[in-house]
Design a protein around this nucleic acid. Structure first.
Lengths: 235, 235
DNA sequence: ATGTTCGAAATTGTATACAATCTGACCGCA
DNA sequence: TGCGGTCAGATTGTATACAATTTCGAACAT
């Protein structure tokens, strides 16, 4: 009785595929902030027309993964130190509450998924694939938001995680260790226990820790594109 | 030495203009939830090609003012009762804190602007233009977020206000009075006084009041489009 | 050598053309 | 009458074509 033969051949949205591919590359720090994203170039890579590339770029611009300058083109976004601070302030406001909610709702299946995330994260780290590890680390937070079952807030958190990836690319201090997996492990434990208070507090301190591993002193980030930094751009 | 002759003739972004026009119409409840937004139709109205209409619609879809169904088209979004609840929960989470921050930073100029908003709101109400009044009421909240000087959170609040407009269109109880201007007035007072605690509490209760003026019992909203409601759509 | 002007190449913004999909009505048949 | 199938019209998805703007280098003057 099922109308469809289980799998769609590929009548999928091309725009979404391109957007996802670009987002992944950005999250894994293969595309660094400031990189120019030419429409033709991307179109050739994925064998699609500029129409869909433009749609993908606009979609990414909306979550501020890329920045579109009129008549200039799209670039991987370069959050300022101020924006970086704002992103983490917002995370501190949203995520602890969300972790609490997740602790009150998580099913055994959810715990499985979270533990799996952590395991994969370890694997990536051991393999020296820091980009993949970072991406997984972000998706861990997104997964918690999903468990909390608040789609609206989850979406906000998703964009914050995305921007955090850019912030980390720009401002992460080499000195501080990247291994947050311990914090993640403790979080999962408290969620599994249904300990709302503990989950909320752990998430709070986790994000504070992340934030304090950034060097957000105002300074010229890189000498990469003076133009952007110097000329007063009005949209 | 200024390069440009003060005003741009109109090399402005056509997409943004269309998106703004549509958003305004939605906010003012001239376009009701569920309304089909045909690309050709809108293109003819604003004398632009489908290309820019599509971009505008996708932009609005991203803030969930419209809903795009593949191969079907774009419709003014119809938030479910669940989404409505989520929107207000998110507002309760974000806005009181933002009001507190606004109270600590507002300049005399900011207070002027807020009072002006309220005045205009009164005018619109007296003129019987409920749509305009509702829109102004929303922009009042956005203005407070701007004063709080947290762009990231402001943007979230902006989308929440936008969605609230749809929620109100669908679920507002006729019985309850629309006049929230008293609450707004008290808020401005506490912000002007720099009374952070009071501002936070007033904003909290204000949003709770708004929420309680909605009828969010689960029920078929309208008989408008069975298809959407019945068939499991996988994006 | 330094700085300025001009123009061709490249890139983005917008419009149009073509392909794929959906909608809805008409028609035949039980 | 009611049900199902088929086809034309309409609508969206994607590609291409054209217009507007920027970029960058070469020619030229200082």
């Amino acid at each position: 009785m099922q109308a469809r033969p289980i799998s769609k051949p590929k009548p999928q949205n091309a725009t979404q595929k391109v957007a996802d591919a670009l987002a992944l590359a950005i999250h894994e720090h293969r595309l660094m902030p400031g990189t120019k994203l030419g429409e033709d170039e991307i179109g050739e890579i994925y064998n699609v027309s500029r129409t869909v590339v433009r749609a993908a770029l606009q979609s990414l611009a909306h979550i501020q993964l890329v920045e579109i300058q009129r008549n200039k083109g799209a670039f991987v976004a370069s959050p300022t130190t101020r924006e970086a601070r704002e992103v983490f302030e917002a995370r501190i406001l949203l995520e602890p509450r969300t972790a609490r909610s997740a602790a009150s709702r998580a099913t055994p299946r959810d715990i499985e998924i979270l533990k799996d995330h952590i395991a994969q994260e370890h694997l990536a780290l051991d393999a020296g694939d820091n980009g993949r590890a970072l991406n997984l680390s972000g998706r861990f937070h997104i997964e918690i938001a999903r468990i909390a079952d608040q789609n609206t807030i989850s979406q906000f958190i998703e964009t914050l995680i995305a921007r955090s990836s850019l912030v980390i690319a720009l401002y992460w201090r080499r000195e501080s260790a990247l291994c947050e997996s311990h914090a993640h492990h403790a979080l999962v434990q408290s969620i599994a226990d249904g300990d709302e208070q503990n989950a909320e507090e752990l998430m709070h301190s986790h994000i504070v820790d992340l934030n304090s591993a950034l060097d957000l002193r105002d300074r010229p980030v890189q000498a990469q594109n003076l133009r952007e930094l110097l000329q007063a751009t009005d949209q």
